[in-house]
């Protein structure tokens, strides 16, 4: 049982890493991506190939996964963001990028095509995931509260007004994209060494949607909201495994309920903070007394 729970938590936290990256890009910088599974896949394959074929140290491979995904993020972001693609067009470009990456992975010889890579060594343990997730959250938190983070939010709120205040919106968007791609890559590297088997069909548009849904449901402009949402989105289907065929229905219902009751996302633009929790319980107690 504990093994089962730690398994869910591991998977949940791997998703948290990718979701936090995407939160910086979608939630704070305001651009939608429907192809972030591609960065996840690129990270997974980069790390797996390095440890599997070349015997590279796992942590180096993880770092390489982040760098590789970040680099691809730069390559895909440079032309699309330079051309100032509007949000919806950008989303479609990423959708194409996501599918193209998957097809590429299915046809390269180094990735062994659709057969995938079996027998990857299991290096990813729960403590490793926890440490990396905490690190990623810490970096993201500091980023969004820095001058650059505020510039990113200004781009989301009104990019013309951001430009007038001296923000280079191309650089600002590209910076967020590279950060989110690198997070996706690291999450992918952990994923590969957790499941010990990867194949291209794992990284479909469904995964991209799930990541974006976690950010939107958690709250655009929040870090802790998407973290919560990512854990819920991984956890709930697992808890509903008994209901099996109804899982996806329940998942859809959850999304609809969030849209109806919390259109701004679980946390909206806020964060979970200790003082906030204290206030909440103080109000709760006062409400119970009166």
């Amino acid at each position: 049982m504990t093994q089962y729970l730690s398994g869910i938590l591991s998977l949940g936290l791997i998703y948290v890493i990718a979701t936090v990256g995407l939160a910086v890009f979608t939630g704070f910088t305001g651009l939608f991506s429907l192809g972030h599974a591609a960065f996840f896949a690129i990270g997974a394959y980069t790390a797996a190939i390095l440890t599997y074929f070349y015997g590279v140290n796992f942590y180096l491979a993880l770092a390489a996964a982040g760098v590789m995904s970040g680099l691809v993020g730069f390559l895909i972001g440079y032309p699309t963001l330079k051309a100032k693609l509007r949000t919806d067009y950008f989303a479609i470009a990423t959708l194409g990028f996501g599918e193209a990456t998957r097809v590429l992975l299915e046809n390269l010889s180094i990735t062994q095509g659709a057969r995938g890579l079996p027998g990857i060594t299991n290096y990813t343990t729960l403590p490793v995931i926890i440490v990396i997730a905490a690190l990623v959250i810490w970096v993201a938190w500091n980023f969004v509260h820095s001058r650059h983070g505020r510039a990113a939010i200004a781009i989301r709120e009104d990019f013309v007004a951001a430009e007038m205040m001296g923000v280079n919106i191309f650089i600002g968007r590209l910076r967020s994209l590279i950060f989110s791609a690198a997070c996706g890559g690291i999450a992918g590297g952990l994923f590969a060494h957790y499941f010990c088997f990867i194949q291209p069909s794992m990284f479909t548009a469904y995964m991209s949607t799930q990541l974006t849904a976690a950010v939107v449901a958690g709250g655009m402009g929040s870090i802790s909201g998407p973290v919560m949402a990512a854990l819920i989105f991984i956890g709930v289907p697992e808890l509903l495994r008994v209901a099996n065929i109804w899982r996806l229905v329940a998942y859809g219902l959850l999304l609809v309920l969030i849209m109806i009751f919390r259109p701004q996302g679980l946390l909206g633009y806020r964060e979970i903070s200790l003082s906030g929790i204290r206030d909440f319980f103080a109000r709760f107690r006062k409400g119970a007394r009166s």
Binding site: R150, I153, A154, M165
Partner: peptide, 17 residues
């Protein structure tokens, strides 16, 4: 064209970007 979801203070700080 203010940044609607930033606070007043954060809006001013953006001016000093």
């Amino acid at each position: 064209r203010l940044y609607a979801n930033l606070t007043v203070r954060e809006n001013l700080l953006m001016g000093a970007y």
